[in-house]
Nucleic acid binder design. Sequence first.
DNA 1: GGCTTAACGGGACTACTTTCCCGTTAAGCT
DNA 2: AGCTTAACGGGAAAGTAGTCCCGTTAAGCC
Lengths: 243, 243
Amino acid sequence: MAREPEANETAPPGPTGSGPDPGTGSGSWTGTGPGTVRPGGRTARVREAVLRAAGDALAECGFAHLDLADVARRADVGKTTVYRRWGTVNGLLADLLSEMAESSLPRTDTGTLLGDLKANAALVRRTLTDPRQGPLFKALIAAATCDERTAEALRRFYAARVEEWVPCVRQGVARGEVPEGTDPHEVVRAVSAPLYYRLLASGGPLDETCAERAAEAAYEAARVGAYRTGAYRIGGEQPNEGE
Amino acid sequence: MAREPEANETAPPGPTGSGPDPGTGSGSWTGTGPGTVRPGGRTARVREAVLRAAGDALAECGFAHLDLADVARRADVGKTTVYRRWGTVNGLLADLLSEMAESSLPRTDTGTLLGDLKANAALVRRTLTDPRQGPLFKALIAAATCDERTAEALRRFYAARVEEWVPCVRQGVARGEVPEGTDPHEVVRAVSAPLYYRLLASGGPLDETCAERAAEAAYEAARVGAYRTGAYRIGGEQPNEGE
DNA sequence: GGCTTAACGGGACTACTTTCCCGTTAAGCT
DNA sequence: AGCTTAACGGGAAAGTAGTCCCGTTAAGCC
């Protein structure tokens, strides 16, 4: 490989995004990238159209076959504009993820932790089996494996999603359903993990059964304290803590 | 997008691989692809060198920046050879996965299911945190999201890995550690899932604690029957099952 | 050892992706 | 409304990935 600057890995195209700081990683950006000085009207419309088109293209073609000129065509926008504002495929996807992180669906509240976890599992399952969202998520995760900036955006996205459901676990602790000291984030992640593992690695149906199992397994593990912070040993051999 | 035949999606370069049928999906291949008539000597050396080079390149550059000409250079092989035998990046990766599926590490036998699951979690963790293997797995999963043939090869790979550890769960059932009817595959997958979720989506340390938790959570969930085939309801879907 | 031809290798050629140039449009401000 | 210039858009130019042609090497077989 002999690729060199890779455009905005060094800085050129700028952080993109419309807000004051979409948080693409380079917090110390002071120069003026396209879209930062006059973010209203046309610029905002262009961003919206391009991000939508990028999502469509990703869902249809997958990450590998994504062509920015094609995205530009779908968005009815000049391809030069796309290259100038986002620079590369990864720059565009990072921005798309920032956008997605802001539009998180509200959690449900069923009254029991198990019910909430099942609702969460069902939501994740619906998302991943959706004809548009499923391929889109696959593509975004694939993109994140190739680019640190995209990976960071993806982590932030999931952090936001997890945070939304954390209160369910906190309530579960307060109600005494799971022990004091349970790490709420870990429980929420434990619900999603098996579904993503199926989607990306092992394959398999991703049906309701599978979602329920994920929720129940996380719930039961949490009940016996598997996600408590600090030491937890079910007859473990030695008390070796991490790293 | 206006990409057309995409080479071997229709057939041209052939199934590749060295064995009689590496099983790349097209089982009805009768023509002679390169590498099938004289698979000995040079051909085998070329395949080995190219697959190794492909793994190196993937681990270093990631899936998106993989260039077959670069792989050829690393392998000290003409790029024409690579294009002729494997056709595309995905064809090459599918072959790489077939190769990897055959070299599965033997499971350990600690005498208890929890011990075995912990050993499995530790193995997966070591693999995913390895400087070469980690990026390689990421890249392969990314590739699988873009191409059905690669995805199929990946599923076979994980099926083989899971199968290796299934006997641990069977023994656990026989010893009465987990209930009759427990789906062994599901338990083994449940151990890996949280680790892969961290690697690909949520991010996070992937330390020993995390691996132990994954094993313990799967174990506890299995104990209460969360992975039994057929119906499993902890108080059904109605809220408030009492505690 | 000699023969046949599968498989390899170099390099020109084609197709596609990305960048650059420069004229046009419209956002933000008074 | 009018002015300034940020941001857009089309098309040419440059760069890169993938294909094809044809001569060379060596695997398989006697």
